[in-house]
Amino acid sequence: TGTRRLSDLRVIDLRAELRKRNVDSSGNKSVLMERLKKAIEDEGGNPDEIEITSE
């Protein structure tokens, strides 16, 4: 578990975070980053400090 910047995430991490939020996880990295950023902002979170749970 740790905090990472949105830009540091790999595509696989972006998809996992989107799936956790029940958000569409298809598309390229830039699309996924925008989608995740919006989802985090909608939750009231900070997209520059994403809580990542290692699996």
Rank of each mutant, 00 (worst) to 15 (best):
residue 28 N to A: 12
residue 33 M to A: 10
residue 46 N to T: 08
residue 39 A to Y: 03
residue 29 K to F: 09
residue 33 M to S: 12
residue 14 L to D: 00
residue 46 N to S: 11
residue 48 D to A: 11
residue 2 G to Y: 14
residue 53 T to L: 14
residue 50 I to A: 07
residue 51 E to N: 12
residue 49 E to C: 12
residue 51 E to T: 11
residue 28 N to C: 13
residue 8 D to Q: 11
residue 4 R to S: 11
residue 18 L to M: 05
residue 21 R to Q: 01
residue 48 D to N: 14
residue 19 R to V: 14
residue 40 I to K: 04
residue 34 E to W: 05
residue 50 I to Q: 07
residue 47 P to C: 14
residue 27 G to T: 00
residue 13 D to E: 14
residue 37 K to T: 10
residue 31 V to Q: 09
residue 22 N to P: 00
residue 7 S to D: 09
residue 52 I to Y: 07
residue 18 L to K: 00
residue 7 S to Y: 06
residue 47 P to M: 06
residue 10 R to L: 07
residue 21 R to T: 00
residue 7 S to G: 10
residue 30 S to T: 11
residue 42 D to G: 13
residue 11 V to C: 08
residue 8 D to P: 01
residue 2 G to N: 11
residue 3 T to F: 13
residue 42 D to Q: 14
residue 30 S to R: 15
residue 19 R to Q: 15
residue 36 L to N: 01
residue 25 S to V: 09
residue 51 E to Q: 05
residue 25 S to M: 07
residue 12 I to L: 13
residue 42 D to E: 12
residue 55 E to A: 15
residue 21 R to P: 00
residue 17 E to W: 01
residue 47 P to Q: 04
residue 44 G to K: 07
residue 10 R to M: 13
residue 53 T to H: 04
residue 16 A to D: 11
residue 40 I to Q: 03
residue 35 R to C: 02
residue 47 P to R: 10
residue 6 L to E: 03
residue 21 R to W: 01
residue 24 D to W: 01
residue 13 D to P: 00
residue 30 S to G: 13
residue 23 V to H: 13
residue 42 D to Y: 08
residue 32 L to K: 02
residue 13 D to G: 02
residue 13 D to Q: 14
residue 31 V to K: 11
residue 7 S to I: 12
residue 46 N to V: 10
residue 9 L to W: 05
residue 13 D to K: 00
residue 8 D to L: 04
residue 25 S to Y: 09
residue 17 E to A: 09
residue 33 M to P: 02
residue 26 S to A: 07
residue 21 R to I: 02
residue 48 D to M: 04
residue 41 E to A: 12
residue 6 L to K: 02
residue 52 I to E: 14
residue 3 T to E: 09
residue 28 N to T: 12
residue 43 E to T: 07
residue 50 I to F: 05
residue 41 E to I: 09
residue 16 A to C: 07
residue 42 D to P: 04
residue 4 R to W: 15
residue 39 A to H: 13
residue 41 E to W: 04
residue 53 T to C: 08
residue 4 R to A: 04
residue 27 G to K: 00
residue 54 S to P: 14
residue 11 V to P: 08
residue 9 L to Q: 03
residue 33 M to C: 08
residue 50 I to M: 11
residue 11 V to H: 05
residue 21 R to N: 01
residue 4 R to M: 15
residue 2 G to S: 14
residue 35 R to W: 00
residue 28 N to Y: 04
residue 26 S to I: 12
residue 53 T to M: 06
residue 25 S to G: 09
residue 45 G to A: 08
residue 6 L to G: 03
residue 43 E to Q: 08
residue 24 D to R: 06
residue 34 E to S: 14
residue 17 E to N: 01
residue 29 K to E: 11
residue 9 L to A: 04
residue 48 D to Q: 06
residue 16 A to K: 11
residue 35 R to Q: 04
residue 16 A to F: 13
residue 19 R to D: 12
residue 30 S to Q: 13
residue 28 N to V: 12
residue 28 N to L: 09
residue 53 T to P: 10
residue 32 L to Q: 03
residue 40 I to G: 02
residue 45 G to K: 11
residue 12 I to D: 12
residue 44 G to P: 05
residue 25 S to L: 10
residue 2 G to A: 09
residue 31 V to D: 06
residue 22 N to I: 01
residue 33 M to V: 14
residue 49 E to M: 14
residue 31 V to R: 14
residue 15 R to V: 14
residue 31 V to A: 14
residue 21 R to K: 02
residue 6 L to T: 03
residue 54 S to R: 09
residue 52 I to H: 12
residue 17 E to S: 02
residue 33 M to R: 11
residue 29 K to T: 11
residue 8 D to E: 11
residue 50 I to L: 14
residue 53 T to I: 12
residue 32 L to W: 00
residue 30 S to I: 09
residue 14 L to V: 02
residue 52 I to W: 14
residue 5 R to H: 12
residue 50 I to W: 12
residue 45 G to F: 05
residue 29 K to V: 10
residue 48 D to F: 03
residue 8 D to H: 08
residue 18 L to C: 14
residue 44 G to E: 03
residue 38 K to P: 02
residue 33 M to K: 09
residue 43 E to G: 08
residue 5 R to W: 04
residue 1 T to R: 08
residue 41 E to C: 08
residue 21 R to H: 04
residue 1 T to I: 07
residue 23 V to L: 15
residue 35 R to P: 03
residue 40 I to T: 03
residue 52 I to Q: 09
residue 47 P to S: 11
residue 23 V to A: 10
residue 17 E to H: 01
residue 14 L to C: 01
residue 42 D to C: 09
residue 44 G to L: 02
residue 17 E to T: 01
residue 55 E to K: 00
residue 50 I to V: 14
residue 12 I to R: 15
residue 45 G to C: 09
residue 17 E to P: 00
residue 38 K to T: 09
residue 16 A to P: 00
residue 36 L to I: 02
residue 24 D to H: 05
residue 24 D to G: 04
residue 30 S to Y: 07
residue 3 T to V: 10
residue 51 E to F: 12
residue 43 E to N: 06
residue 18 L to N: 00
residue 11 V to L: 15
residue 15 R to S: 06
residue 7 S to H: 03
residue 6 L to F: 05
residue 18 L to F: 00
residue 49 E to P: 07
residue 28 N to D: 15
residue 51 E to M: 11
residue 49 E to H: 02
residue 21 R to Y: 04
residue 49 E to A: 15
residue 6 L to M: 06
residue 10 R to G: 15
residue 38 K to R: 13
residue 18 L to A: 10
residue 37 K to Y: 08
residue 32 L to S: 02
residue 44 G to R: 09
residue 47 P to W: 07
residue 25 S to K: 02
residue 33 M to T: 15
residue 25 S to I: 07
residue 10 R to C: 05
residue 18 L to Y: 00
residue 36 L to V: 07
residue 55 E to P: 10
residue 10 R to T: 15
residue 9 L to V: 01
residue 53 T to S: 15
residue 46 N to M: 07
residue 8 D to Y: 01
residue 22 N to S: 10
residue 55 E to D: 07
residue 41 E to G: 10
residue 19 R to A: 15
residue 51 E to R: 15
residue 6 L to R: 03
residue 54 S to E: 08
residue 6 L to H: 02
residue 17 E to M: 13
residue 33 M to N: 05
residue 13 D to S: 04
residue 19 R to I: 13
residue 53 T to R: 14
residue 43 E to Y: 01
residue 19 R to L: 14
residue 51 E to K: 07
residue 47 P to G: 14
residue 27 G to A: 03
residue 47 P to T: 06
residue 53 T to V: 13
residue 37 K to F: 06
residue 49 E to S: 15
residue 43 E to A: 10
residue 24 D to K: 08
residue 9 L to T: 04
residue 7 S to M: 10
residue 11 V to Q: 05
residue 10 R to Q: 13
residue 11 V to A: 08
residue 5 R to L: 10
residue 55 E to M: 06
residue 22 N to R: 11
residue 30 S to V: 15
residue 40 I to S: 02
residue 43 E to K: 06
residue 24 D to Y: 03
residue 22 N to V: 04
residue 18 L to E: 01
residue 40 I to A: 02
residue 12 I to V: 13
residue 13 D to V: 02
residue 39 A to K: 10
residue 52 I to L: 10
residue 35 R to I: 03
residue 26 S to G: 14
residue 15 R to M: 06
residue 33 M to D: 02
residue 13 D to T: 07
residue 30 S to F: 10
residue 41 E to P: 00
residue 20 K to V: 00
residue 41 E to Q: 15
residue 38 K to H: 03
residue 22 N to W: 02
residue 33 M to W: 04
residue 34 E to P: 13
residue 3 T to N: 11
residue 2 G to R: 06
residue 34 E to F: 02
residue 44 G to D: 05
residue 49 E to T: 12
residue 35 R to E: 03
residue 52 I to A: 12
residue 47 P to F: 11
residue 49 E to G: 11
residue 55 E to H: 15
residue 32 L to V: 05
residue 51 E to V: 15
residue 40 I to F: 04
residue 3 T to G: 06
residue 42 D to N: 13
residue 25 S to C: 10
residue 28 N to I: 08
residue 48 D to T: 10
residue 44 G to C: 04
residue 47 P to L: 13
residue 23 V to I: 09
residue 29 K to G: 10
residue 53 T to N: 12
residue 49 E to L: 13
residue 2 G to E: 15
residue 37 K to M: 09
residue 30 S to L: 13
residue 50 I to T: 11
residue 40 I to H: 00
residue 3 T to K: 09
residue 19 R to F: 08
residue 54 S to L: 14
residue 39 A to R: 10
residue 12 I to Q: 15
residue 15 R to N: 01
residue 53 T to Y: 12
residue 48 D to R: 08
residue 15 R to F: 01
residue 29 K to S: 09
residue 18 L to H: 00
residue 16 A to Q: 09
residue 36 L to K: 01
residue 27 G to V: 00
residue 27 G to Q: 01
residue 32 L to C: 05
residue 40 I to M: 07
residue 52 I to C: 11
residue 48 D to L: 09
residue 46 N to H: 07
residue 32 L to D: 11
residue 6 L to C: 03
residue 52 I to M: 07
